[in-house]
């Protein structure tokens, strides 16, 4: 039991000691650099999955965080030049995708359905004033979000550094981990 604490000439009662400890912990937590760091992996390259890593990283930067996105496998597409023109979303194997007209699984796989689904999603997002992928990429670069391309996937899929938009960095798993271990917020998308 703690009734009072003596430091030099000063005596503190229990309530004061608890308050001081609480304030010191709060102060230390605010200084924790890991609380201000977000490391996100973007592993998917379809139009629908392009949004979450870009929305979260730009929102993190807006909240004063030091954010980085590591693009690997199909996620690499997001930072290639002209991605938005080529981006597609497929109704195949994507039963939760809201379609204006219900499409049976058999027809979902028919040629042309991907184009239909893609233009539907683009027009829906546009109508609701959701930022485009291009706009989000611009915001990310303007607000200091680090965009890192996975070197191994680049080599496997045959990408050249010139295939990517300006400002992209290149790195591997160790580069990501070295940042991620210093971040409280890490996401695999």
């Amino acid at each position: 039991m703690l009734d009072e604490a003596k430091i030099g000439e000063l005596t503190f009662d229990e309530e004061s000691v608890r308050r001081i400890v609480r304030e010191e912990i709060e102060r230390a937590m605010k200084k924790d650099p890991a609380a201000r760091k977000a490391c996100i992996i973007a592993s998917k390259g379809t139009l629908d999955w392009a949004y979450p890593p870009l929305i979260l990283s730009t929102a993190a930067a807006a909240a004063g965080m030091d954010a980085s996105v590591f693009f690997t496998f199909y996620g690499l597409n997001l930072i290639t030049k002209g991605y938005e023109r080529k981006a597609k979303v497929s109704p195949t194997g994507n039963p939760a995708m809201p379609m204006q007209v219900p499409v049976a699984d058999f027809f979902a796989g028919m040629p042309g359905m991907k184009t239909v689904a893609t233009s539907m999603m683009k027009s829906m997002f546009n109508r609701k004033h959701v930022a485009s992928i291009g706009e989000l990429i611009d915001v990310a670069r303007d607000t200091g979000v680090r965009l890192i391309a996975c070197q191994m996937t680049m080599d496997v899929f045959g990408y050249q550094p010139s295939d990517f938009i300006e400002g992209v960095e290149f790195g591997g798993a160790a580069a990501f981990l070295s940042q991620a271990r210093r971040a409280h917020l890490t996401l695999f998308i």
């Binding site: 929305i55 929102a59 930067a61 807006a62 909240a63 004033h129 607000t143």
Partner: peptide, 8 residues
């Protein structure tokens, strides 16, 4: 504007 643009 929709998320995340107001905050951005």
């Amino acid at each position: 504007l929709l998320c995340p643009m107001p905050v951005v």
